[in-house]
């Protein structure tokens, strides 16, 4: 599909409902009536190109618009990633957890397999939450401060002190792989668990895990290929504008 600024927003969603994720994360409310993509974006204060680039990537999956996305203010991407985080924490993860709990309560086999899966998944939740907290509490604020201070005449002294001793590259080193465990869980459920009593619930758990896995993959791509390279550039500009000593 060719996504154009003049097409109706409702047509866009109807032709590929996966794009609902983009709308949700940009906090675009429903009730589009017959408004076009550009009108909706303007009304919601969302940059049209930013929206088009993201939507085209989600839709076509062919060419990653890394360079193009990097030309937008970094705070937009941070906002987008933050919405994605709350989507995981408030919705996806608890949902999968509840389904596993349900599965466990239905398990008549007397075995402890589902209990084991639940334990494994709860370990994952802890890891996942730590990962997200690090980004929310440490990384994102740093990035936003960096962009803000770069545009100032004189940077905030506290931030300047912080910026001297830190680079986003350190973060990349500790950016742990949060997908690995999820892939393991998926493979265990798919390949090694004895057939469960209720296929509908079980299948649904798998579908949800596949979905979350794909979504996390996109999330990592955005972080590692757009956000971090963009911040590296901002850091360079910052140190050039405010040289040490």
């Amino acid at each position: 599909m060719h996504i154009s600024p003049t097409m109706k927003m409702s047509d866009l969603v109807q032709s590929n409902f996966e794009l609902l994720a983009v709308l949700q994360r940009l906090k675009i409310p429903f009730g589009f009536k017959d408004k076009s993509v550009q009108t909706v974006c303007r009304e919601e204060g969302i940059d049209l190109d930013f929206f088009l680039n993201l939507s085209r990537w989600y839709d076509e999956r062919d060419f990653f618009p890394g360079e193009t996305l990097m030309n937008h203010p970094v705070k937009w991407l941070v906002k987008y990633l933050r919405s994605t985080h709350s989507c995981y924490i408030e919705y996806h993860i608890p949902r999968i957890e509840n389904e596993i709990v349900r599965m466990e309560s239905m398990d008549q086999s007397g075995g402890k397999n589902m209990q084991l899966m639940l334990k494994f998944f709860r370990e994952y939740i802890t890891e996942f939450t730590t990962h997200i907290e690090l980004e929310e509490e440490k990384i994102f604020p740093y990035i936003l401060d960096l962009e803000e201070n770069l545009n100032k005449e004189h940077p905030d002294p506290d931030f300047l002190k912080k910026a001297r001793g830190y680079t986003i590259k350190d973060f990349l080193d500790e950016h742990s792989d949060i997908e690995e465990k999820l892939v393991d869980l998926r493979n265990i459920l798919l390949k090694y668990l004895a057939p469960p009593s209720d296929n509908c619930v079980f299948t649904n758990i798998l579908i949800e895990i596949f979905r979350l896995g794909n979504d996390l993959n996109d999330h990592t791509i955005l972080e590692e290929n757009v956000l971090i390279p963009q911040v590296v550039k901002l850091e360079e500009q910052f140190h050039k504008k405010f040289p040490q000593g």
Binding site: N113, L116, M117, E123, D184, N187, I188, K191, Y192
Partner: peptide, 22 residues
């Protein structure tokens, strides 16, 4: 062979297959 990477994933496999006990 197993398509399982993490230690906790391998632990789950080992329990499921009676290689170790919970």
């Amino acid at each position: 062979k197993l398509d399982i990477k993490t230690v906790s994933g391998l632990t789950v496999y080992a329990i499921l297959n009676g290689i170790i006990r919970m």
